[in-house]
């Protein structure tokens, strides 16, 4: 049976010691998420128009699909 585990203590110490680094990393991740969000928004907005445009260029019509 393991009575004392200093591997766990080391982990706790590291978490405490590098708290400030984690705040910086979080900001970077939030920045990345923001960029992903913007791209997702752009894709959501324009992808249907792009598909419609491609259908029209290939001689088809999206109206026919609806019917």
């Amino acid at each position: 049976m393991i009575n004392m585990n200093n591997f766990k203590k080391l982990q706790e110490e590291q978490e405490e010691q590098y708290k400030d680094n984690l705040l910086g990393i979080k900001s970077s991740i939030e920045g990345n998420l923001g960029v992903i969000g913007i791209f997702t928004g752009l894709i959501e907005t324009y992808i249907t128009k792009l598909i419609q445009c491609m259908i029209n260029l290939s001689g088809g019509s999206s109206d026919k699909l609806d019917k």
Partner: peptide, 26 residues
């Protein structure tokens, strides 16, 4: 995040690499 940072630091032995690793892993 703290646990990932700690493990990365133990393995990579560099704070800046552990910083990047934590960000990439998250």
């Amino acid at each position: 995040s703290g646990k990932i940072f700690g493990k990365s630091l133990s393995l990579l032995k560099s704070e800046s690499e552990a910083h990047d690793a934590t960000q990439d892993v998250m």
